[in-house]
Write a protein that binds this DNA or RNA. Structure first.
Lengths: 208, 208
DNA sequence: ACCTACTTGCTGACCGCTAGGTAGGTTGGT
DNA sequence: ACCAACCTACCTAGCGGTCAGCAAGTAGGT
């Protein structure tokens, strides 16, 4: 049992604000570099140079490299969440029309989709630091889509003889896989068009 | 202009055979470790320890770490090729029935699919050592599937108003994506069942 | 039969470099 | 006195890679 003691900061508001901004700068630089060269392939020195501070400054703010990675991933998740909600909307068949928005979002900033693709692949094993995080993330996204599709079933937009869990997994799989091919071979693959066709195929499959 | 001189080996057949076996041992150990911890995350020392030789022995056989990686990847490609051909068979609609074979193959030896998933993700950028290799690999696989599906069109098993390239990309994407989710979350995902449903959905979509 | 030249597999010692992380000090503000 | 944001200097571990040399076997010349 411990009482929270009201702790007044012994540093100026300006100093505190400066630290907050610096932390964001670092997170953004790290995001770029992790996306480009992966977590294991990126050194703290490189990130520090990008920001214009010393390597020790990063450790001062985040403690360890792994904590920094956590911050990066959390920051990105928070930024992406609104877009995902916007696409899903009120669920049902209509969300398939808005799927290409996600592709456009990724095409515009290629580094961002790379970040998660690379990080997921670097955390496939249970002992990897972000394994649980990504496992949860995928489960949550799948459940969110299941819920959205179920709403569509209740509005009789979607046939009710389909396994929504399996369908959601297949939808996510299709998007991930297309993104992979696009990253590997940008000139050969039109991501937005790919998403559109994927959405159309699933729409036909699910329409009541 | 140079004449090829018949060069007799100055080492015994036994010695030569021993080297060949050792090289395979190393490739197999490297395959396991690259799959588990990625290329960047795996040290030569670890591989050497697994085999029971010195780190220098690996360099003796393969020259550099990157050459070893090349050997690993080529070895796996050669081993997987027959299965892929068996699944595709004479093309057409029938190949969808045999798609779960690939899933069963991967479920049986989890490390193998991890290897390529991890390596692909580590080589997404043009400057990465295996970027071109994987780019070519995906293109070749896609073209192979296109050809197989076209055969199905000619036998009027498959409707002829579909974009076969896009369909092939979507098929590969679906399989890759499902594999990713399965690796991240093996208990939550039935890979074989996922492949079966993916195949069924595409079969329905394509059937004439 | 013996020597020399050469090849292959491999070790042990070592090198330069980079990595993440630590310790102690400085500055400027509450 | 205390605090946050730094920096300089440094530590240690690990990395890929080099090099000289040895053991064991083969080929050809004498």
């Amino acid at each position: 049992m411990s009482f929270e003691i009201e702790r007044k900061p012994h540093a100026s508001a300006d100093t505190l604000e400066r630290g907050r901004l610096r932390r964001i700068q670092i997170i953004e630089a790290a995001t770029q570099l992790f996306a480009r060269t992966g977590y294991r392939g990126t050194g703290l020195a490189g990130i520090a140079a990008e920001v214009g501070v010393t390597q020790a400054a990063l450790l001062h703010h985040f403690g360890t490299k792994e904590k920094l990675l956590e911050a990066v991933v959390r920051h990105r998740s928070e930024q992406d969440a609104p877009l995902i909600e916007r696409i899903i909307g009120d669920g049902g068949i209509g969300m398939f029309d808005r799927l290409p928005l996600l592709a456009e979002h990724n095409v515009g900033r290629p580094g961002l989709s790379q970040l998660f693709t690379v990080l997921v692949a670097e955390n496939l094993l249970p002992e990897d630091p972000l394994h649980e995080f990504f496992g949860d993330r995928y489960r949550a996204l799948r459940d969110r889509i299941v819920t959205a599709l179920r709403a569509g079933q209740e509005r009789t937009e979607i046939r009710d003889d389909v396994d929504l869990v399996a369908v959601s997994q297949r939808l996510i799989a299709g998007m991930d896989g297309l993104q992979l091919q696009w990253l590997l071979n940008p000139d050969d693959t039109d991501l937005v068009e790919g998403f559109r066709e994927l959405a159309e195929a699933m729409r036909r499959e699910l329409a009541a």
